[in-house]
Deep mutational scan, measured.
Amino acid sequence: GGHPVTTQMVETVQNLAPNLHPEQIRYSLENTGSVEETVERYLRGDEFSFPP
């Protein structure tokens, strides 16, 4: 991942996926670069990993 992630982006995802840890959200956003894509992954039931 190398996309810039803002606190705003993390908070937006958190509102839609409250049971995800912020670190999981941030890591996913760094890989996708997209709030929409991260939320899609969540709704699909994809696994969210923590940063290594």
Score class of each variant (00 low, 15 high):
residue 33 G to A: 06
residue 48 F to V: 03
residue 27 Y to F: 12
residue 9 M to E: 07
residue 6 T to I: 06
residue 36 E to G: 08
residue 1 G to T: 12
residue 37 E to D: 10
residue 18 P to Q: 08
residue 42 Y to F: 10
residue 29 L to S: 02
residue 15 N to H: 14
residue 24 Q to I: 03
residue 4 P to I: 15
residue 13 V to T: 04
residue 24 Q to H: 02
residue 46 D to T: 05
residue 17 A to P: 00
residue 10 V to L: 11
residue 32 T to W: 05
residue 6 T to S: 10
residue 52 P to T: 08
residue 47 E to N: 11
residue 2 G to W: 13
residue 20 L to H: 00
residue 24 Q to T: 01
residue 9 M to R: 01
residue 45 G to K: 02
residue 41 R to V: 03
residue 38 T to I: 05
residue 47 E to M: 10
residue 10 V to T: 05
residue 32 T to N: 06
residue 45 G to N: 05
residue 21 H to G: 06
residue 38 T to G: 01
residue 11 E to Y: 07
residue 23 E to P: 03
residue 26 R to M: 08
residue 51 P to H: 04
residue 38 T to F: 03
residue 15 N to W: 12
residue 12 T to Q: 15
residue 39 V to A: 05
residue 45 G to E: 03
residue 27 Y to C: 09
residue 40 E to P: 01
residue 4 P to T: 14
residue 17 A to V: 09
residue 5 V to D: 02
residue 30 E to S: 11
residue 1 G to A: 13
residue 29 L to K: 01
residue 18 P to S: 07
residue 36 E to F: 11
residue 24 Q to S: 02
residue 49 S to H: 13
residue 4 P to K: 15
residue 3 H to E: 10
residue 45 G to Y: 00
residue 36 E to H: 11
residue 38 T to Y: 01
residue 29 L to M: 02
residue 26 R to H: 07
residue 21 H to W: 06
residue 27 Y to K: 10
residue 50 F to W: 15
residue 22 P to K: 10
residue 37 E to M: 11
residue 32 T to L: 05
residue 28 S to E: 06
residue 25 I to N: 02
residue 28 S to L: 05
residue 7 T to P: 14
residue 32 T to P: 00
residue 51 P to R: 05
residue 25 I to P: 04
residue 44 R to K: 09
residue 23 E to F: 08
residue 51 P to A: 06
residue 1 G to L: 12
residue 49 S to Q: 14
residue 36 E to V: 11
residue 34 S to F: 01
residue 52 P to N: 09
residue 42 Y to N: 01
residue 3 H to S: 10
residue 24 Q to D: 03
residue 19 N to L: 13
residue 26 R to W: 12
residue 48 F to L: 07
residue 15 N to T: 12
residue 2 G to Y: 14
residue 2 G to S: 12
residue 45 G to P: 00
residue 31 N to W: 13
residue 14 Q to N: 06
residue 44 R to I: 05
residue 19 N to M: 11
residue 33 G to F: 06
residue 36 E to L: 12
residue 2 G to C: 15
residue 6 T to A: 04
residue 36 E to W: 13
residue 36 E to T: 12
residue 11 E to H: 11
residue 22 P to E: 11
residue 8 Q to V: 11
residue 30 E to R: 05
residue 38 T to L: 05
residue 9 M to C: 09
residue 28 S to T: 03
residue 41 R to K: 11
residue 33 G to M: 07
residue 44 R to F: 05
residue 47 E to G: 08
residue 39 V to P: 01
residue 25 I to F: 00
residue 34 S to H: 03
residue 6 T to G: 03
residue 46 D to Y: 11
residue 29 L to H: 02
residue 34 S to I: 02
residue 37 E to L: 13
residue 39 V to C: 07
residue 4 P to H: 15
residue 41 R to A: 13
residue 15 N to V: 14
residue 29 L to P: 04
residue 33 G to D: 03
residue 48 F to P: 02
residue 44 R to L: 07
residue 41 R to G: 06
residue 36 E to M: 13
residue 33 G to Q: 07
residue 5 V to T: 06
residue 41 R to D: 04
residue 51 P to W: 04
residue 42 Y to H: 04
residue 35 V to W: 08
residue 17 A to D: 01
residue 50 F to Q: 03
residue 21 H to R: 10
residue 11 E to K: 12
residue 8 Q to W: 11
residue 32 T to C: 07
residue 11 E to S: 10
residue 43 L to H: 08
residue 48 F to R: 00
residue 39 V to H: 05
residue 14 Q to K: 13
residue 43 L to M: 12
residue 49 S to E: 15
residue 19 N to I: 07
residue 2 G to Q: 13
residue 29 L to T: 03
residue 19 N to P: 04
residue 40 E to N: 14
residue 26 R to L: 08
residue 18 P to F: 05
residue 14 Q to G: 07
residue 21 H to Q: 08
residue 29 L to D: 04
residue 14 Q to A: 12
residue 12 T to K: 13
residue 47 E to V: 12
residue 23 E to Y: 07
residue 50 F to N: 03
residue 2 G to V: 14
residue 40 E to F: 12
residue 2 G to A: 14
residue 24 Q to W: 03
residue 28 S to F: 06
residue 10 V to G: 01
residue 48 F to I: 05
residue 45 G to Q: 03
residue 11 E to L: 12
residue 12 T to M: 15
residue 23 E to W: 09
residue 1 G to W: 12
residue 17 A to W: 05
residue 5 V to Y: 11
residue 4 P to W: 14
residue 36 E to A: 13
residue 8 Q to T: 12
residue 19 N to S: 12
residue 12 T to G: 06
residue 46 D to M: 09
residue 34 S to E: 02
residue 1 G to C: 14
residue 6 T to N: 07
residue 16 L to Y: 11
residue 28 S to R: 00
residue 36 E to D: 11
residue 33 G to I: 02
residue 23 E to G: 07
residue 16 L to A: 09
residue 12 T to A: 15
residue 13 V to M: 04
residue 46 D to L: 11
residue 20 L to K: 00
residue 15 N to D: 09
residue 6 T to R: 04
residue 7 T to M: 14
residue 47 E to H: 13
residue 44 R to V: 05
residue 4 P to E: 14
residue 24 Q to R: 01
residue 39 V to N: 04
residue 23 E to N: 09
residue 25 I to A: 01
residue 19 N to V: 06
residue 52 P to V: 08
residue 16 L to M: 12
residue 47 E to W: 12
residue 1 G to V: 13
residue 50 F to L: 06
residue 39 V to S: 05
residue 38 T to R: 00
residue 43 L to C: 08
residue 51 P to Q: 04
residue 8 Q to E: 14
residue 49 S to D: 15
residue 27 Y to E: 08
residue 24 Q to A: 04
residue 39 V to E: 03
residue 44 R to W: 04
residue 25 I to H: 01
residue 15 N to M: 15
residue 22 P to I: 13
residue 38 T to S: 05
residue 43 L to F: 11
residue 9 M to W: 07
residue 5 V to S: 03
residue 13 V to R: 00
residue 9 M to F: 01
residue 44 R to Y: 04
residue 41 R to L: 07
residue 29 L to N: 02
residue 19 N to F: 10
residue 1 G to I: 12
residue 51 P to T: 04
residue 31 N to P: 00
residue 20 L to A: 02
residue 20 L to P: 00
residue 17 A to K: 00
residue 38 T to Q: 00
residue 13 V to D: 00
residue 35 V to M: 07
residue 44 R to Q: 09
residue 3 H to R: 12
residue 15 N to E: 13
residue 16 L to N: 06
residue 25 I to E: 03
residue 27 Y to R: 11
residue 50 F to R: 02
residue 52 P to S: 09
residue 51 P to M: 06
residue 5 V to W: 09
residue 6 T to V: 05
residue 48 F to H: 02
residue 33 G to N: 07
residue 11 E to A: 12
residue 27 Y to H: 14
residue 20 L to I: 03
residue 48 F to N: 01
residue 17 A to E: 01
residue 24 Q to K: 05
residue 37 E to C: 10
residue 48 F to W: 01
residue 32 T to I: 03
residue 7 T to Y: 10
residue 4 P to C: 15
residue 34 S to K: 03
residue 14 Q to P: 01
residue 36 E to S: 11
residue 37 E to S: 08
residue 36 E to Y: 11
residue 9 M to V: 02
residue 43 L to R: 10
residue 41 R to N: 08
residue 40 E to S: 12
residue 27 Y to M: 11
residue 46 D to N: 06
residue 40 E to Q: 14
residue 17 A to I: 13
residue 10 V to W: 05
residue 42 Y to I: 06
residue 31 N to E: 15
residue 38 T to H: 00
residue 5 V to M: 03
residue 42 Y to S: 02
residue 19 N to D: 14
residue 14 Q to H: 11
residue 52 P to G: 08
residue 2 G to L: 14
residue 26 R to S: 06
residue 7 T to C: 15
residue 43 L to E: 07
residue 47 E to Y: 12
residue 17 A to L: 13
residue 6 T to D: 07
residue 42 Y to E: 02
residue 16 L to S: 07
residue 10 V to M: 14
residue 22 P to H: 09
residue 2 G to T: 14
residue 13 V to S: 00
residue 10 V to C: 09
residue 23 E to L: 15
residue 12 T to Y: 15
residue 17 A to F: 15
residue 46 D to F: 10
residue 14 Q to S: 10
residue 24 Q to C: 08
residue 7 T to S: 13
residue 11 E to V: 11
residue 21 H to E: 07
residue 31 N to R: 11
residue 7 T to I: 15
residue 5 V to L: 06
residue 28 S to P: 06
residue 21 H to I: 03
residue 46 D to S: 06
residue 30 E to T: 08
residue 31 N to L: 15
residue 32 T to M: 04
residue 4 P to L: 15
residue 35 V to S: 02
